[in-house]
Structures are given as C-alpha cells and as structure tokens.
Amino acid sequence: MENIKIGLLDFGLRDTKMNSLHVIEDLIEYANHADKLGFSRLWVAEHHVANTRAAWSNPETLLPILAGMTNRIKIGVAGILLSIHNPYHVALNFKLLANLFPGRIDLGLANGVVGEKIAQAAIKDTNQILRSTFDSKLEELVHYLQDEDELFNEGKGIVIPPYKGEIPEIWTLGVSYGSLDRALKLRTNFARSIFHAGSDVSYEKERLAKFREDYFQRYGVVPKMTLAIAGCCHKTSQKAKKILDFLNTKTAVGKGDIFGSPAKFQDQVMTLKEQYGIDEIIFMSAAMKSQDRMMGIELISDIFKLNQN
C-alpha cells in the first residue's frame, strides 16, 4: 500500500470535566505522543468563543511550548484569523519561531469569521469590514516573509529578524478549491477542509493537478497540499461511531464521517487519497476523552506504519 502522511488538527475540544489549563496539559501530552508515533504535523486552531472552559483563543503562544517539547513533528496554527491580526506582528513572531525550530513551524492563514464583539475588541471594526481586508493583509504578510532584500532596501527599510533566516511554511486554508488562485499567486501551500460547515466536498482532481503544474512552472517546486478531515478511529467501528455521534450532538465541529476500526479507517483514508489526489491528510479527532484520543492515534500510527514513512 502507498504511503500517506497524516497530521493532526486540534480545536481544544475535550471532556467537559477538564478546565482550560488541563486542556493545555492534555494537548502537550497529545503532541508528545503524536511526535513519537510518526505524525507529520500538529496544527492548533484559532477560535474566539464565549466559553468559560476555552483553553485558548489565539494559540500562537502555545507554539514554542509544543515545538520545544517535541522533536520531529511540525507545529503550526491553522489558521491564524488574519483579518483581526497585524501582518507585521505575525511575520515577526512566526519568522523567529521558524528559526528557533528550523523546518518545523507552519503558518496557516484563514479568512475566518469572528463574533462582532470580538471584531470590535480586536481591531475596532465590524466583521464585514474585516473579511474584506483578508486578501490585502495576506499579501502584506507574504511580502514581509518572502521579499527580504526589497524590505531591507539597503538599510533604509525594515528587517524581519533574523535577517536571511528561514521562514515558516505558509499555508492558505480553504473549504473548497476557490482559494487555489490565491495560493498560486502568493506562492503558498494549500490545505482544504471537507469537514467545516459549508465545505465543498467535490473531488476536482483535474483542477488540483492543474494547480500543481502551474505552480511548478512558475516557482520550480511542487506545492504541499493537505486534506483536513474529522472523525474517529477506535478498536471497533461501533465505538468510533458512538464517539463521533456524541460530539455531533454537542458542537457543529466534527461532522466528518471518517470513522471506524483501524482497517475501516484506513480504507476510507486511502479512498480519499485516490478521490482527491492528495498525499497527506490532517485529522481532527472527535474523541473528547484523553484515553480515546491517545488510543486513536496509536491505532492510526500502527495501521499506516507512520514511523516507517
């Protein structure tokens, strides 16, 4: 069977008995275990919700902790809600992280929605206005990271330290292939979700192949692409479905139907690989209890032989 890379996505959803600091402790343990099991990357989502048990809103502060306590796995945010952030500040923070942890920092960027109260608190503007600023802010951020000599301007401009250092892997996030043109124009990788609300689940392999070809012709490298899914892997398909159904009654997140025993889960993932023409998936576990989450990634690592990839 062909190899496939598998990364993880974490929204901070845990058993309701956990307080916010316990969730972060659990996340660190999860990251350590995933690192040892051979998972390719761990992305932590930015979400701003009025929930007294929320462990984080912007997880950027967690990245050096997670990267510092692991060895191989790539660590990132998927995605930074750029419309409520200053591109200069994001560039400064992520470039420094990329050089503290070379080759291990991912910067995913999303044109996500926040509540009006959050929009006002973050940047004193309405959600509608914020959404309209995403493209210009994304171009500005990419400029800060990719155009170092132009920015420096022989000492008359600015430097994003460290000068001539590495930059993070930049990812454009989307729920369809509508963002492929943006990724091509700005030379970013591309991650597509098929489990978020409103996701387009059509395959469009030809469109993705055309994107790969155009990207290579323009930049001389092949872009990285992932497919984000949600669900559950457990010892039995019945147990996996029970966990997934429980989450679906509690939240809008986790409406993926990729679930089952290790063998069934593997079959579904490899079908997605063929249907969508991708070689990496990002998996968000629907399991709320630590023991189920840990068991799930152990089973996935074993069935896909991730430590042998």
Rank of each mutant, 00 (worst) to 15 (best):
A91T: 03
A91W: 06
A91K: 08
L92M: 15
L92K: 11
L92H: 02
L92N: 12
L92G: 00
L92I: 02
L92V: 00
N93D: 09
N93W: 00
F94Y: 15
F94T: 12
F94M: 15
F94N: 03
K95L: 02
K95D: 04
L96G: 00
L96P: 01
L97C: 04
L97H: 04
L97R: 07
L97D: 06
L97A: 01
L97K: 05
L97T: 03
L97Q: 05
A98S: 14
A98C: 11
A98T: 10
N99F: 08
N99L: 10
L100H: 02
L100N: 03
L100E: 08
F101P: 09
F101H: 09
F101M: 06
F101E: 08
F101N: 05
P102F: 00
P102S: 05
G103E: 12
G103D: 10
I105V: 14
D106N: 15
D106G: 04
D106I: 09
L107C: 10
L107F: 09
G108L: 07
G108Q: 09
G108I: 11
L109W: 08
A110V: 15
A110I: 13
A110N: 10
N111I: 01
N111S: 14
N111R: 15
G112Q: 09
V113K: 08
V114G: 01
G115F: 00
E116H: 08
K117F: 05
K117M: 07
I118A: 08
I118C: 02
A119L: 12
A119S: 14
A121G: 08
A121T: 10
A122S: 15
A122L: 03
A122W: 04
A122C: 14
I123M: 12
I123L: 05
I123V: 14
K124W: 02
K124S: 14
D125Y: 00
D125K: 13
T126K: 14
T126G: 04
T126Q: 05
N127S: 10
N127T: 14
N127I: 11
N127W: 01
Q128C: 02
Q128F: 10
I129V: 13
I129G: 00
I129F: 07
L130V: 03
L130E: 01
R131F: 04
R131H: 13
R131D: 01
S132T: 15
S132D: 14
S132P: 03
S132M: 10
T133V: 04
F134S: 04
D135L: 03
D135R: 12
D135E: 15
D135N: 14
D135H: 12
S136N: 12
K137A: 01
K137H: 07
L138P: 05
L138D: 06
E139M: 06
E140Y: 02
E140G: 01
E140I: 04
L141Q: 06
L141P: 10
L141N: 09
L141G: 08
L141H: 07
V142Y: 07
V142R: 04
V142I: 15
V142L: 03
H143R: 13
H143V: 00
H143N: 14
H143D: 15
Y144G: 02
L145W: 07
L145T: 08
D147N: 15
D147G: 00
D147K: 14
E148P: 04
